[in-house]
Amino acid sequence: MKIHINGSIKEFKGGKITAEELITQLNLSGKRFAIERNGEIISKNYFAGIYFNDGDKIEIIGAVGGG
């Protein structure tokens, strides 16, 4: 299946993936970030129970230097 992450298409095995699994695969475990799926924020408290599906649009954001 294909998921859009931060504007790029990424392929994953199977038909769905939990938010927790996605984070592990992207080497983001232990990092500070926030996730939005199809325009809705996913609370970090629910990562284990949230499934991403084919065609989902995911944004993963963090804080960077800015004025």
């Binding site: 504007g7 993963i60 954001i61 963090g62 804080a63 960077v64 800015g66």
Partner: peptide, 16 residues
Amino acid sequence: VAIRRLNLGQRPNEPS
């Protein structure tokens, strides 16, 4: 601070 897309290609230990 600004809020931006994470650079997913970065090295795992890159400082933030």
